[in-house]
């Protein structure tokens, strides 16, 4: 007979209880996360491959894809540079007001996406503060690509900085001081020492930033004006098709975004795995 040690009983659950809890958790996840994901792909391919391909190769869809890529290509690098600068200033120096700065960087996370769009309308829209000046100079920001970029940069503002700050805080500044003491310049120190130390964290932040930049809906919806072929991003195109009862088309474009999400998750998992390796080697 198998001996049951008393400590296994009292410091963990019985195998039956474990299986029950695991099953409950998995059922919840299957129902709330897995099922919607499956629904996207299955609805997209409901009528076979041909309508799916038609929907994603339609000129409006292609222009939405192009615009989404352009938006991400502009807003992600901007926030990457900001994230690097902010985390360098915050983690390598001590100055009063640091906590306030950290809170302000996080601000966009606590603002509704719709409000994020609204503030740019209030600033640059026809009725906005700078609206008259802009129209006098023939500049258009709201209901145009610049507005979409601004709203996206706002929404994704904290992503890179938030990944880098805890990482660089933990790494301290010994490595940089060592490099400087060996005669390296500031840029050499940054390129050869700091950047390699944070590359995975940076990539991770960029990945999350990119996913959000490509998928943002609320803020972009408010500033875009939904002009087909001009200011329609992929998520907005999904909405239009859906509201026109073109469900296959909507889900076809949605499935591209879902695939992007899956790729993001896979890369994220791989990076987390690499992170573990690194912290293991360090300590």
């Amino acid at each position: 007979m198998k001996r049951q040690s008393p400590s296994t009983e009292s410091s963990t659950e019985s195998r039956t209880a474990q299986i029950l809890l695991i099953a409950l958790a998995l059922a919840f996840l299957a129902f709330f996360l897995m099922l919607p994901l499956i629904a996207v792909f299955s609805e997209a391919l409901k009528q076979g491959l041909a309508p799916f391909l038609d929907a994603v190769s339609n000129p409006d869809a292609l222009s939405a894809i192009r615009l989404t890529l352009i938006i991400a290509a502009i807003s992600v690098p901007l926030n990457m540079v900001f994230g690097l600068a902010a985390s360098w200033a915050i983690t390598k120096f001590s100055f009063p007001g640091k906590n306030l700065l950290l809170t302000l960087i996080d601000l966009p996370f606590s603002v509704s996406p719709v409000v994020s769009g609204l503030i740019f309308v209030l600033l640059f829209g026809a009725q906005g503060l700078l609206g008259p000046w802009l129209s006098a100079h023939g500049l258009k920001i709201i209901f145009a690509v610049p507005g979409i970029i601004l709203a996206t940069v706002f929404i994704t503002f904290p992503f890179v900085a938030r990944e880098l700050i805890p990482l660089m805080m933990e790494q301290g500044k010994d490595d940089e001081e060592a490099a400087l003491s060996l005669g390296a310049s500031g840029w050499q120190t940054f390129w050869h020492v700091t950047l390699p130390n944070i590359r995975w964290g940076l990539l991770y932040g960029v990945l999350l930033c990119n996913a959000r930049a490509m998928g943002e809906f609320g803020a972009v919806s408010v500033v875009s004006g939904h002009i087909r072929g001009e200011t329609n991003t992929m998520p907005l195109h999904v909405e239009i098709l859906y509201n026109e009862y073109d469900f296959v088309g909507a889900f076809a474009v949605a499935s591209l975004l879902a695939a992007l999400a899956l790729v993001t998750l896979v890369l994220k998992t791989v990076l987390e795995w690499r992170f573990d390796l690194h912290s293991g080697a360090r300590h």
Binding site: I22, L26, L29, L33, M34, L35, P36, L37, A39, V40, E43, P113, L208, A211, M214, G215, E216, F217, G218, M234, P235, L236, V238, E239, Y242, F247, A250, F251, A254, L257, A258, L260, A261, L262, T264, L265, V266, K268, T269
Partner: peptide, 29 residues
């Protein structure tokens, strides 16, 4: 349990999936 790593990754799906996509998928369900 088997597949733990996949499940753990899946938990972040709502962070990665555009909200409009989640919206139409949930409505379809």
């Amino acid at each position: 349990f088997p597949g733990k790593r996949v499940i753990s990754a899946l938990v972040d799906l709502p962070f990665a999936l555009p909200t409009a996509v989640a919206g139409i998928a949930l409505t379809a369900l």
